[in-house]
């Protein structure tokens, strides 16, 4: 459980085009530079936006990774809602106490 490093990696991907390029060419090479557990690695490699939300990634970081992975806005929101159904509440981070049931 290393939410800090999951967010760090996504932060680097969002702001540094060279990391993005490296990640697209060889994700494992980039992933091994961060202390991540298996579940986190899987969520990132599978671009599982919903799971990353459940793990506690801040939306201000996650929405850019989602866009990078080709998610349209409604699809991004839906992925998080579906994940709440499937996995239950957010486990850590700033949203850990949100009921997350969706307002609209």
């Amino acid at each position: 459980m290393s939410l800090y490093y999951v967010q760090k990696l996504l932060y680097e991907l969002n702001r540094r085009p060279e990391v993005r390029k490296e990640f697209c060419a060889d994700p494992q090479q980039v992933l091994q530079q961060y202390k991540l557990d298996e579940e986190e690695m899987r969520a990132i490699t599978e671009r599982d936006i919903g799971m990353l939300y459940i793990l506690g990634v801040n939306g201000q970081i996650l929405m850019h990774f989602a866009a990078m992975c080709g998610y349209e806005w409604p699809q991004y929101i839906q992925a998080m809602r579906d994940a709440l159904h499937k996995h239950g509440n957010v486990r850590a981070g700033v949203y850990a106490t949100t009921d997350g049931k969706g307002a609209i």
């Binding site: 939300y53 998080m80 969706g102």
Partner: peptide, 10 residues
């Protein structure tokens, strides 16, 4: 506001 969360728009 609840930006970039499932509650986006609330």
């Amino acid at each position: 506001h609840w930006p970039a969360t499932p509650d986006s728009g609330k």
